[in-house]
Amino acid sequence: MSAETRPEPCVHAERCMQAYVDRALSVEEVRTVEAHLAGCPTCARCYSLEAEVRTAVREACAEPCPESLRRELRRICDDCDCE
């Protein structure tokens, strides 16, 4: 579906999607978006996929700091000559 043929509330929901997923919308905006999503499976599916992609990025990059590096950072901390 192209932007020209989508209903206005869907176009608005698409514009808000990134900020919604990043929790950057106001409470009022969240309410408006969620009311739309409750009645629009197409937009709800897009939001769900957007959140999934973000989760996938976080999970793919979840490796913890290596222990050897953590020890080295502690050593750097202990040896530091502060300004």
Binding site: C65, P66, L69, E72, L73, I76, C77, C80, C82, E83
Partner: peptide
């Protein structure tokens, strides 16, 4: 690893 060490060294030096 080099980048993190460098960043922490700088952070500890200028912690104030």
């Amino acid at each position: 690893e080099d980048l993190v060490q460098e960043a922490y060294a700088r952070a500890f030096r200028s912690w104030r």
